[in-house]
Design a binder for these strands. Structure first.
Length: 817
RNA sequence: GCCCGGGUGGCGGAAUCGGUAGACGCGACGGACUCAAAAUCCGUUGGGCUUCGGCCCUUGAGGGUUCGAAUCCCUCCCCGGGCACCA
């Protein structure tokens, strides 16, 4: 009788050995058949590793180990996303400093991650808060600046009048400051933007060929928000020098444009407003601008649309009618041209507005079957927005009777010919504002000179080191805390040598994470952000696994940065991640985990009690990896028992020879096939179930399995339970690590198939018997045996057979009547 | 409002190119071992009826297609996520 399985002892032993033998430290330059296995590096919170982190990393680690066992050299790096508002706020809350807080958090995370047994190459750890790293984050900024992809312009920020601080959007909850609850105001500040909108179409197009989860692609498509339509120019009565340009997706409704609406911020508002309307317009605009963006959005959802007449008129370019120009806040300056042609008959918002202010509504699109005898005076109860081939135009001059879908093209073509419009595409995605009026981030490497304006920091002066600032709390000045350090911001202009002021904003933490995976293979290279040869060898990432909450921020930004660096000649590829798979979310007893609910699973506690292997495997067992699952305290005992049984079956002395019976051999091959396919497809829960099933069979009747029966199981278990597998591998008589010594088991396709099958026998589609047949039995044989079954005879009741459906090896259905 | 994903035993979940629904595990019940308990092992476990041979019902609800539907189609309900005055 062998001793009991002691996870604690086994895991300590192997973690020590892995470290001593440097098992997971990859020979970056010499590695053959490289596989870059990436997971989303964590933010090192003070609370320590969250079970969500463990879930994400375990699934990714299993994939890495699986690839390793298949013969690849797997590079699995880890780092820490340690800059950002989270850390800064936490430090504020605890009255400590991020520069002290972060290293201790990282230390704790490192301990916890090592305890989980992930195959990280710790020599290549990346901490984005180290000048060694953010030097290159700043370098990326300079490259984008040189290429014209970074620019400074005014933009609104959220301002809390009570805390006297700038807030990030994430800190504004329903229009109020998350800390004090006061209403947030809008301020305009100079900010740095990356022109991601220049890449909108490419970001969209490449989604066609990259191998990503469909749902993630869909989120990105929605975020990019491509709309096709037309730009149309309207003349303004009395202002021959001005053309009012609008974007519309519905040029087919142009004849129904009965008024126009400008956004309150539109530059023409002041110029075209007539004298008698000026007071009203000014009051309205002022009122709207006083609202912050969040409040305005919220107000828009709740209240009726408001607006005001400018008194000015425009000419509808196709009807030549004079139509009124209004200002209303339901038109947004940041989309299209900040102005619209309003077609109340065919747009819900315009309809609502027209009803409120008694503006004319003209129907120009109707269902084709109502075309004959259409009554132009008919009144609409709501906007009619259909515009397919089944709707046709009316009241539209020479386009009467043309199907709407066709008219969209024809009217645009016609306007284009006459120089009054053009085909146009608009995107919903906005430029990426990277400025943060905060402390805990990499300083943006720019200098403001009175004489030379914005001057980028010369590359040889990088990094611009983030100084230790005692008081890093944001204040009412509206600029970042670095503006308090004269030592930091007083500089000489690199161009003219005159007095200048250093940029005191830091960059968004999403810029750090946009390229961290490029740094891993080159961590010890100090003269380049990423070594060209290594980058060519290891990148793009072969597999990236992470949470879908980053689908539109991190994943979009890093694709953009990668594309931009590619275009600037720094990278040989334009998409950073070959494959991306999202993992699901872990719930606790059906509910989301949160501190306030008090139902947070602390990994340490479970690892202590059951061991890392059991915890890892349980997490993978509780649901499909890509969908997540429900963590239940009791469930973990199932895996615990399973591993006890594996241990009992494999840890003691074993018999030699082939698998004892043909049935068991068949089951073994079928299991290898199933587990191989499931693990490759991230279907870990069913892979584990298949291994359990096999073990149950191999141990049936209390027998001890043979070495040949249990060896392959140990290898298949290795990605899930690496420590246990190492120990059993050794006990099976091997020396060295299973991860270098073993190869993922192969299966024989023929042996994987059973030679006896249970065939279902149905009468009129209802199951009446099951018969055991040799695989591949003919329809005649199956039919003969089926008809002899008592239950079948009874239900046929002597009736005539009308039809027989036969599915080989599965089913025969006898239809009588 | 728009776009996704999902609804299966007491529970987590299997099975979707239409072909034996409920794999695997948890829990529960019964038994063995034990002075006893824990652990372990064996058996039972969707619901109802049963003359113990079986029979009927069952995958959110209702309809449809089919020899056959958890799976396909239509209508609807509920839950989760994303976007949202985007012209």
């Amino acid at each position: 009788m062998t001793e009991r399985y002691d996870p604690g002892a086994v895991e300590t032993k192997w973690q020590k050995r892995w470290e001593e033998t440097r098992l997971y430290n990859v020979d970056i330059d010499g590695a053959e058949d490289p596989f870059y296995n990436l997971m989303m590096y964590p933010y090192p919170s003070a609370e320590g590793l969250h079970v969500g982190n463990v879930y994400a990393f375990t699934g990714a680690d299993i994939h890495g180990r699986f690839k390793q066992l298949q013969g690849h050299t797997v590079f699995e790096p880890i780092g820490f996303d340690a800059f950002g508002i989270h850390s800064e706020n936490f430090a504020l809350e605890k009255s400590t400093h991020p520069m002290e807080l972060i290293p201790s958090n990282i230390k704790n995370f490192t301990r916890q991650l090592k305890r989980m047994g992930f195959m990280y190459d710790w020599d290549r750890m990346v901490d984005v808060t180290q000048p060694e790293y953010y030097k290159w984050t700043q370098w990326i900024f300079l490259q984008l600046y040189k290429a014209g992809l970074a620019e400074r312009r005014q933009a609104p920020v959220n301002w809390c009048p009570s805390c006297k601080t700038v807030l990030a959007n994430e800190q504004v909850i329903d229009g109020a400051c998350e800390r004090c609850g006061s209403e947030v105001e809008q301020r305009f500040l100079d900010q740095w933007f990356f022109k991601i909108t220049d890449y909108a179409q490419r970001l969209l197009d490449n989604l066609e060929w990259i191998d990503w989860s469909d749902s993630t692609k869909r989120l990105q498509r929605n975020w990019i928000g491509r709309s096709e339509g037309a730009d149309i120019d309207f003349e303004i009565v009395g202002h021959p020098d001005k053309k009012l340009r609008v974007f519309t997706t519905r040029p087919d409704t142009l004849f129904g444009a009965t008024f126009m609406v400008l956004a309150p911020e539109h530059p023409y508002v002041a110029a075209i407003t007539t004298a008698d309307r000026r007071a009203a317009v000014d009051a309205y605009v002022e009122n709207v601008l006083a609202m912050d963006l969040v409040e305005r959005r919220k107000a828009g959802e709740e209240r009726q649309k408001t607006g005001v007449d400018t008194g000015a008129k425009a000419l509808n370019p196709v009807t030549d009618e004079e139509i009124r120009i209004w200002v209303a806040d339901y038109v947004l300056m940041e989309y299209g041209h900040g102005a619209i042609m309003a077609v109340p008959a065919h747009d819900e918002r315009d309809f609502e507005f027209a009803k409120s202010y008694d503006l004319p509504i003209r129907i120009v699109v109707i269902p084709a079957d109502q075309y004959e005898g259409f009554d132009p005076s008919a009144e609409l109860k709501q906007a009619f927005t259909e515009h397919t081939e089944d709707e046709v135009l009316v009241n539209s001059g020479k386009f009467d009777g043309v199907p709407a879908a066709k008219a969209i093209r024809e009217i645009t073509d016609w306007l284009a010919e006459e120089g009054r419009g053009s085909h146009a595409v608009n995107y919903r995605i906005h430029d990426w504002c990277i400025s943060r009026q905060r402390y805990w981030g990499p300083p943006i490497p720019a200098i403001h000179c009175e004489k030379d304006g914005v001057v980028p920091v010369p590359e040889e002066d990088l990094p611009v080191v983030l100084p230790y600032v005692e008081n890093f709390k944001p204040d009412e000045s509206g600029v970042g805390p670095l503006a308090r350090s004269a030592e930091f911001f007083n500089v000489r202009c690199p161009r003219c040598g005159g007095p200048a002021r250093r940029e005191t904003d830091v960059s968004d933490t999403f810029l750090d994470s946009a390229w961290y995976f490029m740094r891993y293979p080159s961590t010890e290279k100090h003269d380049v952000p990423f070594d060209a040869e290594r980058t060519a060898k290891w990148l793009p990432v072969d597999m990236y696994i992470g949470g879908e909450e980053h689908a539109v921020l991190h994943l979009m930004y890093s694709r953009f940065i990668c594309m931009a660096l590619h275009d600037l000649g720094h990278l040989p590829f334009e998409e950073p991640y070959h494959r991306f798979r999202k993992h699901g979310l872990i719930l606790k007893e059906g509910a989301k985990m949160s501190k306030s609910r008090g139902n947070v699973v602390i990994p340490d506690e479970y690892v202590e009690r059951y061991g890392a292997d059991t915890f890892r495997t349980y997490l993978m067992f509780l649901g499909p990896y890509e969908e997540g699952g429900d963590f239940r305290e009791q469930g973990i005992t199932g895996i615990s028992r399973f591993f006890d049984r594996v241990w009992d079956a494999a840890a003691g002395p074993l018999g030699d020879g082939e698998p004892e019976t043909p049935e068991l051999e068949q089951k073994l091959h079928a299991t290898i096939k199933k587990v191989t396919e499931d693990v490759a497809g991230l279907q870990y829960n069913t892979a584990i179930a298949a291994m359990m099933e096999y073990l149950n069979e191999a141990r049936a009747g209390g027998r001890t399995p043979r070495r040949s029966e249990i060896g392959p199981l140990v290898v298949m278990l290795a990605p899930f339970a690496p420590h246990l597998a190492e120990e059993l591998w050794q006990r099976l008589g091997h020396t060295g690590s299973i991860f270098t010594g073993a190869h993922w088991p192969a299966y024989d396709e023929k042996l994987a198939i059973a030679d006896q099958v249970d065939v279902a026998v149905q009468v009129n589609g209802r199951l009446r018997a099951t018969i055991r047949m040799p695989r591949g039995a003919s329809e005649d044989d199956v039919r003969q045996k089926a008809l002899a079954e008592e239950g079948v005879k009874r239900h046929m009741n002597g009736k005539e057979i009308r039809k027989v459906i036969f599915v080989p090896d599965r089913l025969i259905n006898i239809v009588v009547g």
